[in-house]
Design a protein around this nucleic acid. Structure first.
Length: 1038
RNA sequence: AGGCCCGUAGCUCAGUUGGUUAGAGCACACGCUUGAUAAGCGUGGGGUCGACAGUUCAAAUCUGUCCGGGCCUACCA
């Protein structure tokens, strides 16, 4: 077959999609362009334009959870802020006014540590720095980080009110937080209790867990007998005791084991586990030939865990024994081993029985619940019941199976005690120097740890004194020494103790509002709020927070630290009550607004108390609030409350949303919920969304020590942040997000596809003007009296479908659903089908061709929607594409998602094209075979014969230019099964294809094969269609 | 150690109330095109749905156990 004679080069007459100067190159250069764009948005004041534009729209309040103002941002921050940006931008474009006020959390220990370290380097101890000076340094430290983090967030493309952010340390915020706390006080929920904390006697301070390190230490270990309570009083134990007595067990003792003898005076209970089997063991004989006389005696009856009995009895130097019965500890009451002990006259002089009245805060020691009265006898203060409590923390791995429980001196001990008896009855046996107090009668003033001299940090006299007392009381069964891991101070390396200290709490189970407790209100609100059900259809986040609120203890809100908002209250020395006086409160809040929380330390108490009260009658609380109370209060001063919103855009919102990492179930979601329920009786949010954590490519957590971290700054510099945004948008962010080279590369590929699609639209729409449009945007058909081609009707139908999918996806925060629908549309519908088919018309038709105009009109609608739908995800690239096409507009981000006319819905076109594409797949399959056999190269070299069994389908194929759809130069549609060796696809029944080469000559312009006899004599080497186009082109050129 | 959650092709993900040979996009391989060209089109390979056991006529889907991973149990945010 001969080509037309070499003649004119028609290339210049073809409407190729290249753009002059290539303003939108495929190679995006994002790392360089993105920062310029950020700067530009700042310069045009985009955020304020958005606000102005949206002022009359319905309000959607997005409340930003504040990151901590410390350090550079990491990938977790990036994921968090980008997801927030996706919400804010998509809500904004969906027709809401979505004001995004970013914030920072500023108080707290991490900054306090840093600042403390700085002072230490300068040779000053924290204790020597005045509170106000120290706090000033903390404030400056936080202030230094905020602008740095802010600029990093902006680099991520986050559109927010960066010039007007909030912090928890602004004077207004500090005053607001204090005021919030006073509201909780007024609700009657704040009380003083106590809790054991890690305490360093050497440094006279409490420590956070992160300030603790574990080192080897040798401690004494003792086995102590707790005798059964004698049945002198009527209580639950009596009946049980009677049974034991009748079994001959009245002299039975329960044995505990401990490495801290000094905590025995603080003992208030013994814990056991109902999962452990216990027995009563009677000692039969004692080891002979010992250098000392063991304390254990033949005939002693001891209750022990069966698994540990032998170890204990051997330690006690028993030679033989027998197990006489089972032992069920539940409901039994013991007596304290020192009940009948009397100190030697020297040590115990003047201390009568009963409890000391020198308790740390006077009113703290409520009567001991199980035993209000001493039992008489000669003791000095240990005449109380020691109940046996069932606890999960008890194991039979070591010890005796019974655990000495001193609620002042251990976390487990405290928990099990408060679970049974609440805050009451917990003694303050140790003072801040680590000396035993009057509440440890007989041991007052004894040091647990030596505070001075050569032996600083070694055991003080307390342990020995207690052991001596136990021996004197006949309560010691055995003792020894144990080398074990023990908590020490990170700084001083001195050993630590658990010490009960007075603390402030918010009560969860106190009725206060319509007879409901804070816990009940919070649980009710959890039911009201959407915890992602709308997005995932699942209730797992709701279940998670519900479980936490159900199980949690009272909120411990006081901290013995410096960098925070104080608990701005005065306690009456006479009765321990909190002073509640509106005038006093108003003076405190007003002063804080003026001078920040510092005024609490800098101002004499009398100034706040005014004339009505005397400062000496009150204790001024100098603890600071848990920083979670700070961030839990942000809603009050950022979003405001119904009576006092902070901005007009926060009035009457359709919804208020919080979006944070799933760890915030116990953090911000949690504290905000409790705070707001305590002060307002409702949750501060209507919707809560959570996201998972960023992992490395293997799904392992990122850590600097492993070296598998990926920094957002690196991605921004190497790939462009848009790649990360795309990656996040395409992930199921409720789960953990994997991040590695493969995912980033994949995201880069997706980016190129989308960018190239936009680029192709830009090129194809070159010079497109309104006059060329075949219908006004909202109208589907008509235009020049010609009916829109099926292909264009179908594309509009697809846009209509996508519109619904995308809006629905954004509405429910399913970004990946929106993105994958768009990407699939770009790949499958646009690139592989529509554009591939329409290239011929777009390139080669005359400019006036209705087909070409229709295509360009529809592509214009496509471009309009793609740029809008993708704008939340790819703010940089959509802006670039939009401004390339419309350089006179301000920003793509001032647009909304375009309305898509309902009339674009066209089920006929949708189904018809689906059928045609199915038949087309048989043709392309056949062409592939022909190609492999080298019969053809390009599809245009073929003119297949298509055999169709079904009349209806055949009619459909004949109703359109099926060759055009298959991009072949010709096609023949025939009825019937076709030859046996024709190409068929198993999934497309009744269609067979025989590939034949196209006849005629190859058009020099459109490369189609055609019959040269039909050619326009002026242009013999091109098809008549091309001739028409070239004629028009030539005419326009003159 | 407990509480909660996750585990479908190399990657990101779909898989309605259990019901044909488990899908998509990307990546990969091969081919075509050279007028989207550091692009575009086509064809193809690839999964015992983390493992095991059970319920059922039937399990990716329901139950249990285990394995791997994550978050939370902090005077960390």
């Amino acid at each position: 077959m001969a080509d037309a004679p070499a003649g004119r080069d028609y290339r210049e007459t073809v409407f190729l999609p290249d753009l002059p100067g290539d303003p939108f190159p495929l190679r995006a250069g994002l790392p360089k362009k993105e920062p310029e764009r950020v700067k530009h948005w700042g310069e045009i004041g985009l955020y304020h334009l958005l606000r102005k534009d949206a002022a009359v729209r319905p309000k959607f309040v997005f409340h930003d959870g504040p990151p901590y103002a410390n350090g550079a941002i990491h990938i977790g921050h990036a994921e968090n802020k980008i997801l927030k940006d996706l919400v804010v931008r998509s809500k904004q474009m969906a027709g809401f006014d979505c004001d995004y006020v970013p914030g920072w959390d500023c108080h707290g220990l991490p900054i306090e540590w840093k600042v403390e370290e700085d002072f230490r380097k300068a040779g000053r101890k924290k204790a020597d720095v005045p509170a106000v000076e120290f706090r000033k340094a903390c404030r400056e430290y936080a202030d230094k980080w905020i602008p740095l983090q802010r600029d990093e967030f902006r680099r991520l493309g986050i559109e927010a009110d960066w010039g007007n952010y909030y912090t928890t340390m602004s004077f207004d915020a500090e005053a607001a937080i204090a005021a919030e706390f006073l509201r909780v006080v007024r609700a009657g929920l704040v009380y003083r209790g106590s809790k054991p904390v890690m305490w360093s006697p050497v440094e006279r301070t409490s420590l956070a867990e992160a300030e603790v390190e574990y080192q080897e230490k040798t401690s004494p270990m003792i086995w102590v007998k707790f005798p059964l309570m004698q049945p002198t009083r009527l209580n639950e134990a009596t009946e049980k005791f009677a049974k034991l007595q009748s079994a001959g067990h009245s002299s039975l003792s329960v044995v505990i084991w401990t490495t801290t003898p000094w905590t025995i005076p603080g003992n208030r209970a013994v814990s056991f586990s109902s999962a452990i089997k216990y027995g009563v063991y009677e000692v039969e004989s004692i080891e002979q030939g010992l250098a000392f006389e063991p304390w254990v005696k033949a005939g002693d009856k001891l209750a022990l865990a069966d698994k540990l009995a032998e170890d204990v009895l051997r330690a006690a130097k028993a030679a033989s024994w027998k197990r006489v019965s089972d032992f069920d500890p539940s409901g039994i009451v013991l007596t304290h081993p020192l009940r009948d002990w009397r100190p030697s006259p020297l040590a115990g002089e003047g201390r009568e029985g009963g409890r000391s009245d020198a308790q740390a805060p006077a009113q703290l020691n409520a009567p001991h619940p199980p035993t209000p009265a001493p039992q008489g006898g000669g003791g000095v203060g240990y005449q109380f019941d020691v109940p046996l409590l069932d606890g999960d923390h008890v194991t039979d791995d070591a010890g005796t199976g019974f655990v000495h429980t001193a609620p002042s001196h251990g976390a487990d001990d405290f928990v099990i005690w408060t679970k049974h008896f609440g805050q009451e009855g917990i003694p303050f046996t140790v003072d801040e120097e680590g000396k035993l107090t009057k509440e440890a009668p007989g041991f007052e003033g004894l040091e647990i740890i030596q505070l001075e001299g050569k032996n600083l940090g070694k055991d003080g006299p307390a342990n020995k004194a207690v052991m001596d007392a136990l021996i004197a009381a006949g309560a010691l069964l055995a003792r020894g020494q144990l080398k074990h891991s023990y908590p020490h101070s990170w700084r001083s390396k001195a050993p630590l103790i658990f010490r009960n200290t007075p603390q402030w709490f918010i009560a969860l189970d106190r009725e206060f509002r319509d007879g409901k407790t804070l816990r009940q209100i919070a649980l009710d609100e959890i039911e009201r709020v959407d915890w992602g059900q709308k997005r995932t259809g699942e209730t797992k986040d709701q279940n998670r927070i519900k479980g936490m609120i159900q199980d949690r203890p009272d909120w411990l809100i006081s901290r013995q630290r410096a960098w925070g908002v104080p608990l701005p209250i005065f306690v009456k020395k006479s009765d321990g009550s909190i002073l509640q006086d509106d005038d006093v409160d108003a003076r405190i809040i007003a002063a804080m607004k003026q001078g920040g929380a510092d005024v609490w330390w800098a101002t004499p108490a009398q100034d706040f108390l005014g004339a009505k009260y005397k400062a000496e009658d009150f204790e001024k609380v100098e603890d600071i609030l848990d920083v979670w109370f700070d961030s839990g209060s942000t809603h009050a001063f950022v979003v405001g409350n119904p009576d006092a919103p902070t901005r007009s855009s926060f009035v009457n919102p359709v919804s208020t949303m919080y979006l944070e990492g799933s760890d915030q179930h116990r953090g911000w979601f949690h504290s905000s919920l409790l705070e707001s329920c305590a002060t307002r009786g409702r949750a501060p949010y209507d919707e809560v969304a959570t996201h998972g954590f960023t992992m490395d490519e293997k799904g392992m957590k990122m850590s600097k020590s492993i070296g598998n971290t990926i920094e957002p700054q690196t991605i921004a510099a190497q790939n462009g942040i848009e790649i990360l945004r795309l990656l996040i948008a395409s992930a199921e962010y409720g789960d953990d997000l994997r991040l590695g080279k493969i995912m980033i590369d994949q995201s880069g590929e997706m980016y190129r596809k989308l960018r190239n699609t936009l680029r192709y639209c830009l090129g194809s729409l070159k010079g497109f003007e309104e006059s060329e449009r075949v219908f006004p945007a909202p109208a589907p058909q008509g235009g020049g009296g010609e009916e829109l081609p099926l292909l264009e009707r179908w594309l509009l139908h697809r846009l209509w479908q996508l519109d619904r999918v995308v809006r629905q996806a954004y509405d429910t925060y399913q970004f990946r659903a929106a993105l994958s629908a768009i990407v699939e549309f770009c790949n499958v519908d646009l690139s592989a089908f529509y554009v591939d088919v329409r290239k011929d018309a777009l390139y080669c038709d005359a400019a006036t061709s209705f087909r070409r105009r229709a295509s360009r009109t529809v592509l214009d609608e496509t471009f309009s929607r793609l740029t809008a739908w993708l704008a939340p995800i790819m703010p940089f690239t959509t802006e670039e594409a939009w401004l390339t096409r419309f350089p006179d507009t301000l920003s793509v981000h001032l647009r909304q998602f375009p309305e898509t006319p309902a009339s674009w819905e066209d089920d006929f076109a949708g189904e018809e094209v689906a059928r045609l594409r199915e038949a087309r797949s048989v043709v392309t399959g056949a062409l592939e075979v022909a190609r492999r056999e080298k019969a053809i190269g390009a599809a245009l070299e073929a003119a297949p014969r298509v055999f169709v069994v079904d009349d209806e389908l055949r009619a459909s194929l004949q109703a359109v230019d099926f060759a055009e759809l298959c991009i072949t130069s010709g096609i023949v549609i025939e009825a019937g099964e076709g030859p046996a060796d024709a190409f068929r696809l198993p999934e497309v029944a009744g269609v067979a294809v025989v590939v034949e080469k196209a006849s005629g000559v190859k058009c020099a312009r459109s490369w189609k094969y055609f019959d040269p006899a039909t050619a326009d004599p002026r242009y013999p080497d091109i098809t008549p269609r091309d001739a028409e186009a070239v004629a028009a082109w030539d005419a326009a050129r003159g």
